[in-house]
């Protein structure tokens, strides 16, 4: 149903999330690093970006900054995924909020279907926010 861009460097995790999201009927595109992510975004407009932070070459935050710079990409809701510790997450939460991230998840804390649920929620909220009250989907 929705178009998901999954940015994650670990192939196994990619397999896992891709499997789940596709099981739920979503369309998943994958980028395994920050550069690829931006490349993909040139042609693909997802409804949601799942963004890993720790990636080679360009890390999640850098990518995020880039995305937010571009007017056509700015609107797309982003969920940051990470396996950093809670503490690091907390430290980064400020930054994340400042950059306009919709949610920040620790991968090991959530099962794949929880992640899917969160994704759906975020997309739902986003649609509600960006559409006039009279219109509904």
């Amino acid at each position: 149903m929705a178009k998901i861009l999954l940015v994650e460097d670990d192939t196994i995790l990619v397999e896992m999330y891709q499997a789940k999201f596709e099981l739920e009927g979503h369309d998943v595109k994958v980028a395994t690093n920050g550069e690829d992510c931006l490349k993909v975004l040139e042609e693909f407009e997802p409804d949601l970006i799942l963004l890993d932070i720790l990636m080679p070459k360009l890390n999640g935050f850098h990518v995020l900054k880039e995305i937010k710079k571009q007017p056509n990409l700015r609107q797309i809701p982003v969920i940051l995924l990470t396996n950093l510790g809670q503490a690091e997450v907390d430290m980064n939460q400020e930054l994340a909020k400042a950059l306009g991230v919709n949610d920040y998840l620790i991968k090991s804390h959530h099962t794949p279907d929880e992640v899917v649920a969160k994704a759906v929620k975020v997309m739902g909220n986003h649609r509600q926010q960006n559409q006039p009250p009279s219109t509904n989907k």
């Binding site: 995790l13 999330y17 794949p112």
Partner: peptide, 12 residues
């Protein structure tokens, strides 16, 4: 990372 993978696949 591997723990997450285990968790995820098991969950599914």
């Amino acid at each position: 990372t591997p723990l997450t993978a285990i968790k995820g696949f098991l969950s599914m």
